[in-house]
Amino acid sequence: MTLGLINANPVVHAKKERVARTEDLHGDDAVDPLEIYDILLSVDIRDPEHPYSLEQLSVLSEESITVDDKLGRILITFTPTVQHCSMATVIGLCLRVKLKHYFPPHYKVDIKVSPGSHANEESVNKQLNDKERVAAALENPNLRQLVDECLYSNEL
């Protein structure tokens, strides 16, 4: 079996320039897509196959995140780089673990691949949003290690 890269030549996009948030000392800061986007990129989840960040590979964008602060719902739609990307579930898992650290338990996080972007779209979605399966995946020591590496690589 060859262990070649699934997507050898990904299209790399430029990093977008950030607009600095204006500090507002009064009033509340509601959770917004930009905040989640910052969280997901702050620890720089890397595509496990390439040394580029998810932003550069255009896997995630600010527009692909929707938030309902009142109901506590977050929906993230990401786009794998190729149709048959086997890493889609790992990326999704990383995103889920990351957000779990950042939000209180009453937030419900949905993670999906964007429609039509993946060959096994349905099964990937199912795997990512099934509590039991996520828990089981995280009990797998190899998978756990992979996720931790993705999340904390630049903290070490």
């Binding site: 509340d28 800061d29 509601a30 905040e35 650290h101 950042y102 939000f103 209180p104 338990p105 009453h106």
Partner: peptide, 17 residues
């Protein structure tokens, strides 16, 4: 701290994490 994760201010939430 888990309550602070739900704080209304972003800076506080970040510290809480």
């Amino acid at each position: 701290i888990s309550k602070a994760l739900d704080d209304s201010k972003r800076a506080v939430r970040q510290e809480a994490v």
